[in-house]
Amino acid sequence: MYMHHHLLLILHLISAAIWVGGHLCLAVGILPGALKKKDYTLITQFEKRYEPIGMSSLVVLVVTGMWMALQFGIGPGRWFSFSNPLERVVSVKIILLLATVLFAISAQTRVIPHLATRPKKLYEMAFHIIGVTTIGVAMLILGSFVRYGGI
Rank of each mutant, 00 (worst) to 15 (best):
E87M: 07
S106C: 09
E124M: 11
Y50M: 10
G29F: 09
E124N: 08
R118K: 14
G21K: 04
F127R: 07
F82G: 12
M125W: 01
L142T: 02
S56V: 02
V59P: 00
A126I: 04
N84A: 14
E47I: 02
M55W: 05
L8A: 10
H12P: 01
I151F: 13
T134F: 01
Y2P: 01
S91K: 07
H4D: 14
Y50S: 06
G149I: 10
M68H: 10
L26H: 03
I43V: 15
T100V: 08
M3I: 13
L122F: 08
M3W: 12
M125I: 03
G33A: 09
V146F: 11
M125F: 09
G29D: 05
T133W: 04
H128D: 09
K36A: 15
V101N: 02
I141P: 00
A16G: 11
G149H: 09
K37C: 11
H5N: 13
L115W: 04
G54C: 05
K36W: 07
A126N: 08
A107S: 14
K38W: 13
G143P: 02
M55V: 13
A27Q: 06
R78M: 12
G75T: 14
P76V: 10
G150W: 06
I30A: 08
I43Y: 00
I74M: 06
I53M: 12
H5L: 14
L24D: 07
K93M: 14
L97Y: 03
L61H: 01
T64P: 02
E124P: 00
I130Y: 04
A69T: 10
Y2S: 13
I130D: 02
I105C: 07
S91A: 12
P52T: 07
S144E: 04
S57L: 01
H114K: 13
M139Y: 00
S57E: 04
A107L: 09
I129E: 03
I30W: 05
A138W: 00
P76H: 10
D39C: 11
P119F: 03
L7T: 14
Y50E: 07
L61M: 13
G143L: 07
E124S: 12
T100W: 06
L35E: 04
K36M: 10
R147T: 12
A69N: 08
F145K: 03
V146N: 06
L26D: 00
L115G: 04
L58P: 00
G136P: 02
L9D: 09
